[in-house]
Design a protein around this nucleic acid. Structure first.
Lengths: 355, 355
DNA sequence: TAGAACAGGTTACGCGTTTAACCTGTTGTA
DNA sequence: TACAACAGGTTAAACGCGTAACCTGTTCTA
């Protein structure tokens, strides 16, 4: 079990060389070493199964090759944050990109924002990807932190010096609205769990996309049980609309559930469109139409920007990432409701005026 | 940006002490240090914001506090392995448990099994959790690897010395079968992408659970496009059964999609039960009945066993984890099909005998 | 023929922390 | 009185690696 590990010095001694030469061969600095020696060293490294010890490397060159991925343990995930569609997709993409770039990925789910500096510093991380901390004082963090970091979907009052990879929330909302309008919807509802940051922008986009149509907003609770209660009391209101734009696939799926539970069909009786394009969107029935964000592109950007920052290029501005529309099965033309609704409204107005 | 980091020696010098004393205070070895000094040191550590440097710790005590989580990049996930319901749930639970135990989690998605030793060794990891490598020669790994590891769902010919946390596949299949039988099903189909390891045991369990009922097996392709083609040709066969047990929620959801796409209702026309209890099972409609495995329990076990192994207790035997039945909306009694089928069979037999 | 250039190395040190071994002065014990 | 025990430290070595600076001998050049 406890096989003694092979060190550079072991290789060097066995060949009657110095550690420096072996190190040079390992790092391809082969100008100073004869081809013959290079070959001998490489062969023995292979034969003995030399594996570098990060402890030494860390100490000697003061960088670890670790990139930290820090995820906000927001209570709305109820302790299951890494299972969320968007988060797990981001993690998956980051894992692939970091691997490709030769970095290691250390994942840390944090409840306490202030721990970030500590973790990054103790490991001498190459960089940090910060996910899910929307409204934070990133400029204060920049001062405390002496390594590069990029932020996913930060909501910054002042930009500059902070690299923020933010999804085009307005645009996403807009194309959702435009699509719904094209499909013939005139009364659309947006459901979201808050009215700040990203959600506000998505709603604004939706309103502009739907143009002369109507786009209302309904705030739903963040906790599952509260949402269940909420839907009991508010489904009536919701079904007065012909389409719902949910700010996440998660909420979209839940709404579809509630609707179908009450005997309503999607998309026949109600169109629903989500946001994110989670893994399971195409597995469920009706498959979920959604506004896609591309985790792969964002991860590629994140890693390449971290690299550039490492080179000293700190003036990286933030990037706004484009969304795209994914048409699936949960959106259709409003079949009958609009006509019904016109009638209903007439009747109701009559009723009122008659009273 | 480049604030000089505070080292033990800085603290020591400022107080006119040796680094050893400061180190002792940090590690609570306070027998050799006066209460007065302890207090002074602690206060200065706090004031200067001392953060330990893992490089030094790693070098000095030859252990990193890192636990690696290694995930098999199986092609069936098509590059999205960390988005899988079971995998992401495991990761989430492991993240929480490792954090609680004071470990760091380094996530590595591996295509090449043999890289495991290298990664573990170069970081002097405390331990390893190996996920998704079903049939591998873990005994050979044990010889090469000089740190503890636990395996998720390994399929080992010889047990002993390897700690394998394996789900009770037979039991899971059994309770699925039992439940379907209780609901009145007599002709059940199991769909799986292979007929080895876990899947075989689940099918065996299903057969015993369904008792005198019939449980057939159908192998589906691992690649999405091939499955699409497959379903086109085989949906007819599938709907001759009254219930389907899928070996993953993923496959269950996909089947439900295919069924509903063809105008069949779940559970009215066909009952479907999955395996895993993924995040989205309760979000979709019909919500997915499934055999639950508890990622939290497994993660707790994994971490506590790794700790024990670190103490030298290597004789940890494997653990078989119990599953549980989660009744949701995708299973119901077979309403009409059985009767229809009896008629159909009679007619067919007649037809044959007459020929 | 001086000395520059270069090939092919070696030596020495730094990095931050832990820990075994050592030191010194004081008090307790037989 | 001798010396053990202990409090409260200090010192120095060790850990594995990378690298700047240095060294030696040979060949090329003016």
């Amino acid at each position: 079990m406890e096989a003694k590990r092979v060190r550079i010095i072991d290789i060097a001694e066995e060949l009657g060389l110095s550690t420096a030469t072996v190190s040079n061969v390992i790092h391809g600095k082969t100008k100073r070493v004869s081809g013959e020696t290079v070959k001998r060293v490489q062969e023995l490294l292979e034969k003995r199964g030399y594996i570098p010890d990060m402890a030494g490397i860390l100490l000697a060159q003061n960088s670890s090759g670790i990139v930290g991925v820090v995820v906000n343990n927001h209570e709305k995930y109820e302790g299951r944050v890494l299972e969320d569609g968007f988060i797990s997709a981001s993690l998956n993409a980051l894992s692939a990109e970091l691997d490709k770039a030769g970095y290691f990925m250390l994942v840390k789910v944090l409840t306490d924002w202030s721990e970030i500096v500590k973790v990054a510093s103790m490991w001498n991380m190459e960089g940090l990807v910060i996910i899910g901390f929307c409204e934070q004082e990133y400029h204060k963090l920049r001062e405390k932190m002496h390594i590069p970091f990029v932020v996913y979907d930060g909501y910054l009052k002042e930009t500059g010096k902070i690299c923020n990879l933010v999804i085009d929330n307005y645009g996403g909302g807009f194309i959702a609205g435009e699509y719904l309008r094209q499909m013939g919807h005139k009364r659309v509802l947006c459901i979201a769990d808050n009215y700040i940051c990203m959600d506000k922008e998505r709603i604004d986009g939706l309103r502009d996309g739907i143009k002369d149509g109507m786009a209302d907003f309904l705030q739903i609770p963040q906790k599952k049980e509260e949402r269940d209660v909420f839907y009991q009391g508010n489904l009536d209101k919701i079904i007065e609309y012909t389409a719902v734009f949910a700010v996440s696939d998660f909420y979209a799926a839940e709404l579809i559930y509630k609707l179908q539970e009450h005997g309503l069909k999607v998309p026949e009786d109600m169109s629903v469109i989500g946001f994110d394009d989670s893994f399971w969107c195409e597995k469920v029935y009706p498959s979920l139409s959604t506004i896609r964000q591309d985790p792969g592109e964002r991860a590629r950007l994140a890693v390449s920007i971290l690299k550039e920052m490492k080179q000293g290029v700190y003036e990286k501005t933030s990037v706004i990432l484009k969304t795209s529309l994914v048409k699936r099965g949960s959106v259709a033309a409003p079949a009958w409701k609009d006509k019904f609704w016109e009638e209903h409204t007439k009747l109701r107005k009559k009723g009122y005026s008659n009273e």
